[in-house]
């Protein structure tokens, strides 16, 4: 599904990703871990198409297409979803409006009619119930005045409505209390299907207790320095990131 080869990217002339390669198949859950500044979030932003980052080398193929050629909105409509580490507050834009616009943008791309208003509401309410969200959030401004946990739930709600084929969740666990973490994890697990891949970008192992990854990758200085199964995350938790750095340098 996603084939990243020797990806190099920089921001303001500083190279952050220094030859990252990664292969993800449908149905898999990958965790990308690493210390602060290792390039985890940059990777997520580059895949989503943030224009602040300049890709200087390497290729990214998504379902056979050259992803780097696509605008962020085209990537979204093709089935890529980025769950933001810091979801943006957009005052005055109704949450339901954005959800509907997003769903319809994708449907249009797929050659489908706009979603029926009743169908949309029913679907949104279902997904919100699953995430333990009050339906009132539909009528609030996007993330406007939401708590940290509410914002993250809202991200997962968007993901659930958009049904992406590849979801990249950037630090979705940060700022969550245990109840919110559980609700968010449940939401993500409900979307675990054989035709979908999920990438969890996380600093801590905690999230992986709730969403079990098939693969764990450790990122250091813009490269994947170690890959393994979920036991790698536990090992990291125990030994700390210095262990990886040393292993990488040695």
């Amino acid at each position: 599904m996603l084939e990243v080869k020797n990806l190099k990217a920089s921001i303001g002339g500083t190279e952050i990703l220094r030859g990252l390669s990664l292969h993800i198949n449908a149905g898999e859950v990958h965790a990308i871990m690493g210390p602060n500044g290792s390039g985890k979030s940059t990777f997520a932003q580059v895949i989503a198409g943030h224009s602040d980052y300049e890709v200087t080398d390497g290729t990214v193929e998504f379902n056979g297409k050259d992803l780097l050629e696509l605008e962020p909105e085209e990537r979204a409509r093709e089935g890529i979803f980025l769950g933001f580490q810091y979801p943006v507050e957009i005052a005055g834009v109704n949450n339901a409006y954005l959800l509907k616009a997003a769903v319809n943008a994708k449907r249009k791309h797929q050659g489908l009619d706009e979603i029926d208003a009743f169908e949309f509401l029913k679907l949104a309410r279902e997904k919100m119930a699953l995430l333990g969200m009050d339906p009132k959030f539909l009528n609030r401004g996007v993330n406007e005045g939401f708590s940290g946990g509410e914002k993250k739930r809202n991200e997962i709600l968007q993901m659930a409505m958009l049904e992406p084929s590849l979801a990249i969740l950037d630090e979705t666990d940060s700022g969550l209390d245990i109840d919110a973490l559980r609700a968010v994890a449940e939401g993500v697990n409900a979307l675990r299907t054989p035709d979908r891949a999920i990438v969890l970008v996380t600093h801590y192992q905690r999230l992986l207790d709730y969403i079990e990854p098939d693969y764990v990758h450790v990122l250091s200085e813009g490269r994947i320095v170690r890959s393994g199964d979920k036991s790698l995350a536990l090992e990291l938790e125990e030994k700390g990131y210095d262990w990886v750095r040393e292993a990488a340098n040695g």
């Binding site: 979204a76 943006v88 616009a101 997003a102 943008a105 791309h109």
Partner: peptide, 12 residues
Amino acid sequence: ALFYLRTRGLSR
């Protein structure tokens, strides 16, 4: 905010 909306499929 523009980037956020675009990652949700809205054109620029």
